[in-house]
Each structure stands twice: as C-alpha cells, then as structure tokens.
C-alpha cells in the first residue's frame, strides 16, 4: 500500500515540476534573461577562439582608435581591440560569481540549518554574530576582509564574497527551517531515533530547497554586482584580465577622450546583471506560486 501511495506522490511531484518548467518557458522575461546569459556563457567558454583579435596580447599599432568597421568598439590606449575584450570579458566573472554563490549557499545553508534546528545557545550566539555582520554594508565588509587577507587573487575574491554572503543566506534558511521544524514529520523522525544530522539534511533540507534556490539565484546577481564593484575600486580582479570591470577601472580616467573603452564594457556588465535578475525573478515567481 505504501508503494502505491509513494508512486502516485512521486508522479504528482513530477507533474508539478513539469508544470513549473512550462510556466518558466512561457515567461518572456525568463526567455530574454536566459538568452543573454547563454550568450555570455558561450563567449566565456569559447573565449579567444571567437574574438576577432587577441583580447590580451594583440597590440596593434592603432592606439585609442574610435569605433570603426575594422574595430567595432574601437581600440584602447595599448591598441587592444575593445570588441574582442568585451567578448572575452565575461570569463572571470562567470567563474567567480557562481563559485562564490555556491560556496556561500553551502556554508549559509549549513549555518541556517544548525541555528534553525537546534535553537538555544548555538542559535543565539551565531544569530547575534550574523546580525552584527549584516549591520556593515557589503562592500565595506568586503574591502575590510580583502585588506586583512592581503591577497587579491581570483580565489581570494571568491572566498571573500562567499564569506560576506553566507550570513544573509543563513538568515533566510534559518527562517525557513523554523517553520519546518515544528511539523509532524520532523517530530516523527526524531521519535524514530534518527540522529539530528540525518533529520536536518535528509528530512528538513529537501523541504526548504525552494527558498534556498530562490535565495541562491538572487545572490548570484549580487555576487556579480559585488565582484564588479570590488574590481572597479581596485580590490578585486587585476589587469591584464580582460574582465569588464578591470577594463573600466583601467580606462575611466580617460572617459572624456575615449568613451568607447568604458561605455561598452559598462553596457556588458549591465546586460549580464539584468539578465541574471530577470532569470531569478521569474524562477522566484514560479516557485512561490
């Protein structure tokens, strides 16, 4: 009897999942966002194989050229083709931002599960620390952590963003777990004599997945935002990476003379964050309906 109920339940879940996917594929904002995202992902994967010039080393003799048919987006002060650099510029940020988001989600979810499930002293202590950390704005905190760590490699930036984001995720997960932990199935598992880590990860976690997923997609947008901003103020990625924010921070002092070296990477960053935001917004709408 249990098997029949389980099978129908499972197929019900599958129908629900298919329905969600269908809704997602019908939403225009999701399609536009996913399309732009896919475009930048392709550029990141193919890198210098699709760019008309080498994004890093190709130094033509045409320095600081205006946009023309030969160089669509012009060239920078070192004679590098801006169009090639914009195409290649998605690579680093599309590696760092998702990695940081993943790390932050794992760490934050663990913290949130522990604080929400056990409550008591562990919860009070960790939650107060999280409150204190959240009182400091993200970028200020990141600058402080980067300075203390003393390294500005891609790895350091990833870890710093992950550290800064995990308290935010932990708070969301904790709220979701608090709601779940009072339900009967948790009590049942506990009475069955399951260990707490089993109950937390095998029973509670699957049921709080939707809010975690939504939070993660939102954080991904902010991770791109944060990496770009950190890089722009000189605390993130460093030249000669063709990263968009590196290009901007290299060239914005010369904005009046060569606006094309700044405007095109700026538009690229904007298109990427807006695309991620459109995707996360539609995922959120579908999951929370």
């Amino acid at each position: 009897m249990t098997s029949v109920a389980a099978v129908s339940e499972r197929s019900e879940a599958r129908v629900a999942r298919r329905e969600r996917l269908r809704l997602l594929l019908r939403s225009p904002s999701f399609l536009i966002g996913a399309g732009v995202l896919l475009f930048w992902l392709t550029c990141a994967l193919l890198g210098s194989r699709i760019t008309p010039y080498d994004p890093i080393f190709d130094q033509t003799s045409d320095l600081s050229q205006r946009p023309s048919t030969e160089h669509w987006f012009g060239t920078d002060r070192l004679g590098r083709d801006v169009f090639s650099r914009v195409l290649a510029g998605s690579r680093d940020i599309l590696l760092i931002a998702p990695a940081a988001t993943l790390l932050a989600t794992i760490f934050g979810t663990t913290l949130g599960l522990i604080t929400g499930y056990f409550r008591g002293i562990a919860d009070d202590t960790i939650s107060r620390v999280i409150d204190a950390v959240l009182a400091i704005p993200l970028i200020v905190l990141a600058v402080t952590v980067v300075t203390s760590v003393g390294s500005r490699s891609a790895w350091a930036v990833t870890v710093v963003i992950a550290i800064v984001f995990s308290p935010i995720i932990a708070r969301t997960v904790r709220a979701a777990v608090l709601g779940e932990a009072q339900l009967d199935y948790v009590e049942a598992a506990r009475l069955r004599g399951e260990r707490s880590h089993y109950v937390m990860f095998a029973e509670v976690l699957p049921n709080v997945m939707p809010p975690i997923l939504v939070e993660a997609t939102i954080r991904l947008g902010y991770a791109i935002f944060a990496v770009a901003t950190l890089t722009f103020i000189g605390f993130g990625l460093q030249p000669p990476s063709p990263d968009w924010a590196v290009q901007i921070s290299d060239n914005w002092q010369f904005l009046a003379e060569q606006w094309w070296t700044v405007l095109f990477p700026a538009i690229a960053i904007a298109s990427l964050v807006v695309a991620v935001n459109l995707v996360s917004d539609s995922v959120q709408q579908v999951l929370e309906r």
């Binding site: 902010y222 914005w252 917004d281």
Partner: peptide, 20 residues
C-alpha cells in the same frame, strides 16, 4: 521590470553613464 533592472546594475556603471 525597469525599476528592478536599474536596481541591480552596479552604481559605478550607472554613474559612469551619467557622467558620460
């Protein structure tokens, strides 16, 4: 949609476009 899109674009990008 416009409001949310503007909200996620980093300030320095918006600022640069405004300066330009």
């Amino acid at each position: 949609v416009v409001g949310l899109s503007l909200a996620v674009v980093p300030e320095f990008v918006t600022g640069l476009v405004l300066i330009l």
